[in-house]
Computed example of a mutant assay.
Amino acid sequence: MSVAPAATPGQTNDDILSIFTRHPHLSGLPVVENDRPIGLINRNQFMNHLARPFHREIFGRKSCIAFMDNTPLVVAHDTPLTDLSYLALANGDKTLNDGFIVTDHDRYAGVGLGVDLMRAMTDLTAEKNRQVMESIHYASVIQQSFLRHSRRDMAATLDDYFMHWAPRDVVGGDYYYFVRRPEGFFAAVIDCTGHGVPGAFMTLIMASALNQVLRHADLRDPAGLLGEINRMVKASLGQQADEVVAADSQQSDDGMDTAFLFVDSQTRRMTFAGAKTPVFLLTPGSDAFEVLDGNRMGVGYVATPDDYCWDNREVTLAPGTTVYVSTDGLIDQIGGSKRIAFGKRRLRETLLRCRDQPLPAQQAELLETFDRWQGSEPRRDDVTVFGFRLP
């Protein structure tokens, strides 16, 4: 705000012309009567009026209120900046062009410029964005800390593997879990509803539910684990079908697609249960993948019954068998010259080409192929791919 010169109704248009001439940077001139603002004269409009033929001769000695806007934006000096921006927006373009009048207890205090308001709003937005990004980056530290134990157990258990976890944003809705047991290991690749901050919140809910269930549940029964987590998530989010009110726009309908698997290290028996997420198996000497499809029902959603039972599928892994699991962020990514999805077929073809390489090398080739396919297309979702080979 600046304390700009002010006119009175008793001053003529010739007086106003003189004021504008003395103050070339003055865009608007308040008109004040008895210390109270009654209007605002826009410099450009005023000059345009007087520049017309004979207008100065006709209007020069008349009161300046002839060219005054009698409905300018008038705000108190303690109006919050955010409220001021809303008022300026509601008042239309003239506030940005003419400025606005500032009062102190209804008395004239000064004038604000539209360009100053825009600059202040830009600075405020930049500061808020900085604070938000700092919070999100810290949330990323928290989210990754939840994965630390899984990474440690994975490295201690598997000799040849990769785990690629790449949120679309700083944080994401994909999550993985790995726990080592004397008799084998349990692994889960989870794709929660959404990405970014909402998706990250869902991963924390799922991680909490999984940790609670695993304290007492049988890891050899992935389908049973899915059933328990389904009931827990639906109850915690209030997503039972009989509690949903159709007209309630705030009602959540969130959950996860996932693959749960337990591998018995002695018998090489893998038990798998999936919610809309398959597992791909590649055995030595085979030119094609074996696909273990999960059930076509997500976990935790409103439409998923409380008592829904997923199916366990069991398979014995021959020596050298490689197992892959991917969330749909990789499969659904648009790219290529025809702008179509990467797809399961392209995923399998890429992995077949590098099947004899160690798993970290396979990861590098897969990601190079995927990045080349994506090209300049924006990333659509979080991407998680897990692969391991049993000796």
Rank of each mutant, 00 (worst) to 15 (best):
G28W: 00
E127D: 09
N295L: 02
D242C: 04
D307M: 09
T283P: 00
A275Y: 08
F342H: 05
T79Y: 09
G224V: 03
Q363P: 00
M118S: 08
F370I: 03
L237C: 13
D287S: 15
R61S: 07
G196P: 02
G335Q: 05
V213S: 15
K276G: 03
A66W: 07
A90Y: 10
Y108G: 08
T277H: 01
D218S: 14
Y308R: 01
T8P: 03
D371K: 14
A273P: 04
A273M: 05
Y108V: 05
V115A: 11
A217C: 05
N44K: 14
D15H: 15
V115G: 09
F146V: 09
V132Q: 06
Q251Y: 02
D15C: 10
T8D: 00
C309H: 10
Q45Y: 10
Y86M: 11
D174P: 08
Q374G: 03
R296D: 05
P182G: 05
D160H: 06
E290K: 15
Q212C: 15
A341H: 06
S326I: 06
S145R: 13
D356K: 13
V315E: 00
T384L: 04
F20R: 05
G184L: 02
G274L: 02
T258D: 01
F262Y: 14
M202E: 00
P391H: 07
P5R: 11
P182S: 03
A318G: 07
R130Q: 12
P30G: 06
A66L: 13
E33C: 13
H25A: 13
R168Y: 00
G60R: 11
M1H: 10
V74H: 06
G114H: 09
E349H: 13
V279M: 13
L158W: 02
G60N: 09
L89I: 15
R148H: 04
R52E: 05
C64Q: 06
S376L: 10
D83V: 13
P24K: 14
A4S: 14
D328G: 02
G110R: 07
P53I: 11
E290V: 10
I19W: 04
N295G: 03
F20I: 08
R268F: 03
L210C: 15
R180A: 08
G224W: 10
E57H: 14
Q144Y: 11
T271L: 09
I38F: 05
V383D: 01
N13M: 08
T82H: 10
R168T: 02
L124C: 05
G298L: 09
R22V: 04
R313I: 04
M297D: 00
Q11M: 09
Q131K: 15
D248E: 06
D356Y: 00
S140R: 13
F342Q: 07
G196N: 06
P30Y: 12
G110K: 08
T350C: 15
R215V: 04
G285P: 02
A90F: 12
V263E: 02
R379L: 10
Q143A: 15
